[in-house]
Amino acid sequence: MPRVVDHRARRAEIVNAVIELIATEGAEALTVRKAAAAAGLSTGALAHYFADKDALLAAAFAEVVARSGFRIRTLPGDADPADLLYQALLAPLPLNDARRTESRVWLAFLDRALVREDATELLREVYAEWRRQVSGIIVRGQREGRFRADIDPEATAHTLTALVDGLTVHAVFDPARLDADVLRRLIDAQVRSLLAGPAR
Protein backbone atom coordinates (compact mmCIF):
# COMPACT_ATOMS: atom_id res chain seq x y z
CA MET A 1 0.00 0.00 0.00
CA PRO A 2 1.55 3.38 -0.97
CA ARG A 3 2.51 5.69 1.85
CA VAL A 4 0.10 8.60 2.34
CA VAL A 5 1.92 11.91 2.06
CA ASP A 6 0.73 14.94 4.00
CA HIS A 7 1.33 17.49 1.25
CA ARG A 8 0.77 20.49 3.49
CA ALA A 9 3.33 19.22 5.99
CA ARG A 10 5.76 18.35 3.19
CA ARG A 11 5.43 21.82 1.70
CA ALA A 12 6.06 23.37 5.13
CA GLU A 13 9.16 21.22 5.55
CA ILE A 14 10.50 22.41 2.22
CA VAL A 15 9.82 26.06 3.06
CA ASN A 16 11.52 25.75 6.45
CA ALA A 17 14.52 24.12 4.78
CA VAL A 18 14.71 27.00 2.29
CA ILE A 19 14.55 29.57 5.09
CA GLU A 20 17.44 27.87 6.90
CA LEU A 21 19.40 27.59 3.65
CA ILE A 22 19.03 31.31 2.97
CA ALA A 23 20.06 32.06 6.55
CA THR A 24 23.23 29.98 6.37
CA GLU A 25 24.33 30.44 2.76
CA GLY A 26 22.45 33.46 1.45
CA ALA A 27 19.79 33.77 -1.22
CA GLU A 28 22.34 33.63 -4.01
CA ALA A 29 23.17 30.05 -2.96
CA LEU A 30 19.55 28.93 -3.16
CA THR A 31 18.93 26.41 -5.93
CA VAL A 32 16.27 23.78 -6.48
CA ARG A 33 18.92 21.10 -6.02
CA LYS A 34 20.14 22.54 -2.69
CA ALA A 35 16.60 23.07 -1.44
CA ALA A 36 15.71 19.49 -2.28
CA ALA A 37 18.79 18.17 -0.49
CA ALA A 38 18.09 20.34 2.57
CA ALA A 39 14.52 19.01 2.69
CA GLY A 40 15.65 15.42 2.18
CA LEU A 41 13.94 15.10 -1.22
CA SER A 42 14.89 14.47 -4.81
CA THR A 43 14.68 17.39 -7.19
CA GLY A 44 11.82 15.61 -8.93
CA ALA A 45 9.86 15.29 -5.71
CA LEU A 46 10.42 18.94 -4.87
CA ALA A 47 9.21 19.95 -8.34
CA HIS A 48 5.75 18.67 -7.38
CA TYR A 49 5.59 21.60 -4.94
CA PHE A 50 7.77 24.36 -6.37
CA ALA A 51 8.71 24.95 -9.98
CA ASP A 52 11.89 26.94 -9.54
CA LYS A 53 14.04 29.12 -7.30
CA ASP A 54 11.66 32.08 -7.57
CA ALA A 55 8.77 29.96 -6.32
CA LEU A 56 10.89 28.72 -3.42
CA LEU A 57 11.92 32.25 -2.46
CA ALA A 58 8.35 33.54 -2.72
CA ALA A 59 7.11 30.72 -0.47
CA ALA A 60 9.84 31.44 2.08
CA PHE A 61 8.91 35.12 2.03
CA ALA A 62 5.22 34.32 2.46
CA GLU A 63 6.07 32.18 5.49
CA VAL A 64 8.11 34.96 7.07
CA VAL A 65 5.26 37.42 6.48
CA ALA A 66 2.82 34.94 8.02
CA ARG A 67 4.95 34.58 11.14
CA SER A 68 5.19 38.32 11.65
CA GLY A 69 1.49 38.74 10.91
CA PHE A 70 0.65 36.03 13.41
CA ARG A 71 2.55 37.91 16.12
CA ILE A 72 0.49 41.00 15.39
CA ARG A 73 -2.86 39.21 15.07
CA THR A 74 -2.42 37.40 18.37
CA LEU A 75 -1.80 40.57 20.35
CA PRO A 76 -4.64 41.17 22.83
CA GLY A 77 -7.25 43.32 21.14
CA ASP A 78 -8.16 45.10 24.37
CA ALA A 79 -4.55 46.08 25.15
CA ASP A 80 -3.58 49.70 25.69
CA PRO A 81 -3.07 51.20 22.19
CA ALA A 82 0.42 52.40 23.06
CA ASP A 83 1.45 48.91 24.17
CA LEU A 84 -0.27 47.43 21.14
CA LEU A 85 1.63 49.73 18.77
CA TYR A 86 4.91 48.97 20.53
CA GLN A 87 4.40 45.22 20.15
CA ALA A 88 3.18 45.54 16.55
CA LEU A 89 6.31 47.46 15.57
CA LEU A 90 8.52 44.91 17.31
CA ALA A 91 6.83 41.99 15.53
CA PRO A 92 9.01 41.97 12.37
CA LEU A 93 12.27 43.02 14.04
CA PRO A 94 15.19 40.55 14.41
CA LEU A 95 15.10 40.23 18.19
CA ASN A 96 16.61 36.73 18.29
CA ASP A 97 18.37 34.22 16.05
CA ALA A 98 15.17 32.82 14.56
CA ARG A 99 13.90 36.26 13.66
CA ARG A 100 17.28 37.29 12.23
CA THR A 101 16.86 34.32 9.92
CA GLU A 102 13.42 35.60 8.94
CA SER A 103 14.88 39.04 8.29
CA ARG A 104 17.47 37.61 5.92
CA VAL A 105 14.69 36.00 3.90
CA TRP A 106 12.83 39.33 3.85
CA LEU A 107 15.92 41.14 2.56
CA ALA A 108 16.54 38.44 -0.05
CA PHE A 109 13.01 38.89 -1.35
CA LEU A 110 13.43 42.67 -1.45
CA ASP A 111 16.36 42.17 -3.77
CA ARG A 112 14.31 39.84 -5.97
CA ALA A 113 11.45 42.32 -6.08
CA LEU A 114 13.71 44.80 -7.88
CA VAL A 115 13.71 42.66 -11.02
CA ARG A 116 10.39 40.76 -10.95
CA GLU A 117 7.07 42.55 -11.20
CA ASP A 118 5.14 39.71 -9.51
CA ALA A 119 7.48 39.94 -6.52
CA THR A 120 7.15 43.73 -6.50
CA GLU A 121 3.36 43.50 -6.45
CA LEU A 122 3.39 41.00 -3.59
CA LEU A 123 5.70 43.26 -1.63
CA ARG A 124 3.43 46.26 -2.23
CA GLU A 125 0.48 44.28 -0.88
CA VAL A 126 2.41 43.20 2.22
CA TYR A 127 3.56 46.73 2.99
CA ALA A 128 0.06 48.14 2.42
CA GLU A 129 -1.44 45.64 4.87
CA TRP A 130 1.28 46.34 7.42
CA ARG A 131 0.67 50.11 7.20
CA ARG A 132 -3.08 49.51 7.48
CA GLN A 133 -2.59 47.56 10.72
CA VAL A 134 -0.34 50.22 12.23
CA SER A 135 -2.63 53.04 11.11
CA GLY A 136 -5.61 51.25 12.66
CA ILE A 137 -3.87 51.05 16.02
CA ILE A 138 -3.04 54.76 15.86
CA VAL A 139 -6.64 55.68 15.00
CA ARG A 140 -7.88 53.66 17.95
CA GLY A 141 -5.30 55.31 20.20
CA GLN A 142 -6.46 58.76 19.10
CA ARG A 143 -10.08 57.80 19.69
CA GLU A 144 -9.20 56.68 23.22
CA GLY A 145 -7.09 59.76 23.90
CA ARG A 146 -3.78 57.89 24.10
CA PHE A 147 -2.19 59.39 20.98
CA ARG A 148 -2.00 63.04 19.96
CA ALA A 149 -4.91 64.31 17.89
CA ASP A 150 -2.60 66.15 15.47
CA ILE A 151 -1.05 62.93 14.17
CA ASP A 152 -1.88 61.82 10.63
CA PRO A 153 -2.40 58.06 11.12
CA GLU A 154 -1.54 57.04 7.56
CA ALA A 155 1.56 59.21 7.28
CA THR A 156 2.73 58.12 10.72
CA ALA A 157 2.18 54.47 9.85
CA HIS A 158 4.27 54.96 6.72
CA THR A 159 7.05 56.57 8.74
CA LEU A 160 7.01 53.91 11.45
CA THR A 161 7.03 50.95 9.07
CA ALA A 162 9.87 52.54 7.10
CA LEU A 163 11.75 52.98 10.38
CA VAL A 164 11.25 49.32 11.26
CA ASP A 165 12.44 48.35 7.79
CA GLY A 166 15.59 50.41 8.24
CA LEU A 167 16.24 49.07 11.72
CA THR A 168 15.85 45.54 10.37
CA VAL A 169 18.56 46.13 7.75
CA HIS A 170 20.94 47.67 10.27
CA ALA A 171 20.28 44.99 12.88
CA VAL A 172 20.97 42.19 10.40
CA PHE A 173 24.28 43.73 9.38
CA ASP A 174 25.35 44.95 12.81
CA PRO A 175 23.57 42.85 15.47
CA ALA A 176 26.10 43.72 18.16
CA ARG A 177 25.26 47.41 17.91
CA LEU A 178 21.53 46.94 17.41
CA ASP A 179 20.68 44.07 19.73
CA ALA A 180 17.20 43.30 21.03
CA ASP A 181 17.44 45.71 23.97
CA VAL A 182 18.50 48.60 21.73
CA LEU A 183 15.74 47.86 19.23
CA ARG A 184 13.14 47.79 22.00
CA ARG A 185 14.37 51.14 23.36
CA LEU A 186 14.25 52.75 19.93
CA ILE A 187 10.72 51.55 19.27
CA ASP A 188 9.60 52.57 22.75
CA ALA A 189 10.93 56.09 22.13
CA GLN A 190 8.96 56.33 18.89
CA VAL A 191 5.74 55.24 20.56
CA ARG A 192 6.28 57.66 23.44
CA SER A 193 6.68 60.52 20.95
CA LEU A 194 3.10 59.93 19.80
CA LEU A 195 1.48 59.98 23.22
CA ALA A 196 -0.99 62.62 24.28
CA GLY A 197 0.00 64.30 27.51
CA PRO A 198 2.94 63.25 29.68
CA ALA A 199 4.99 60.32 28.35
CA ARG A 200 4.25 57.08 30.16
Rank of each mutant, 00 (worst) to 15 (best):
R3Q: 12
V5Q: 00
H7S: 02
H7V: 01
A9G: 03
A9H: 01
R10L: 06
R11L: 00
N16F: 06
A17V: 02
V18I: 05
A23C: 05
T24K: 15
A27W: 05
E28D: 14
A29R: 08
T31Q: 03
T31N: 03
K34F: 00
A35S: 14
A35V: 08
A36R: 10
L41F: 10
S42E: 03
L46D: 03
A51R: 15
A51E: 10
K53C: 07
D54N: 11
A55N: 00
A55F: 02
A55P: 00
L56Q: 03
L56N: 04
A62N: 08
A62T: 07
A62L: 09
E63T: 11
A66I: 06
G69R: 07
F70M: 13
T74G: 07
A79W: 01
P81W: 14
A82N: 03
D83V: 07
L85M: 05
L85P: 01
Y86H: 11
Y86L: 08
Q87E: 14
L90I: 07
N96C: 10
A98T: 04
T101H: 13
E102R: 10
S103L: 09
R104L: 11
R104Y: 06
A108C: 01
A113G: 07
A113R: 12
L114Q: 12
V115N: 08
R116S: 15
R116C: 13
E121W: 14
L122E: 08
L122M: 08
L123A: 09
L123Y: 05
R124Y: 14
E125S: 09
E125Q: 12
E125N: 08
A128G: 12
W130I: 05
Q133S: 12
S135H: 05
S135K: 09
I138C: 07
R140I: 00
G141T: 00
E144G: 02
G145I: 05
G145R: 07
F147V: 03
F147K: 02
R148C: 02
A149K: 15
I151T: 07
I151V: 12
D152W: 05
P153I: 04
E154K: 15
A155V: 15
A157I: 05
H158S: 14
H158C: 13
T159S: 13
A162E: 15
L163F: 09
D165P: 00
G166W: 02
V169A: 10
H170V: 11
A171I: 04
V172M: 04
D174E: 11
P175G: 02
A176F: 13
D179F: 10
A180T: 03
D181C: 01
D181V: 04
R184M: 00
L186F: 11
I187C: 09
D188R: 14
A189Q: 08
S193T: 06
A196Y: 03
A196S: 07
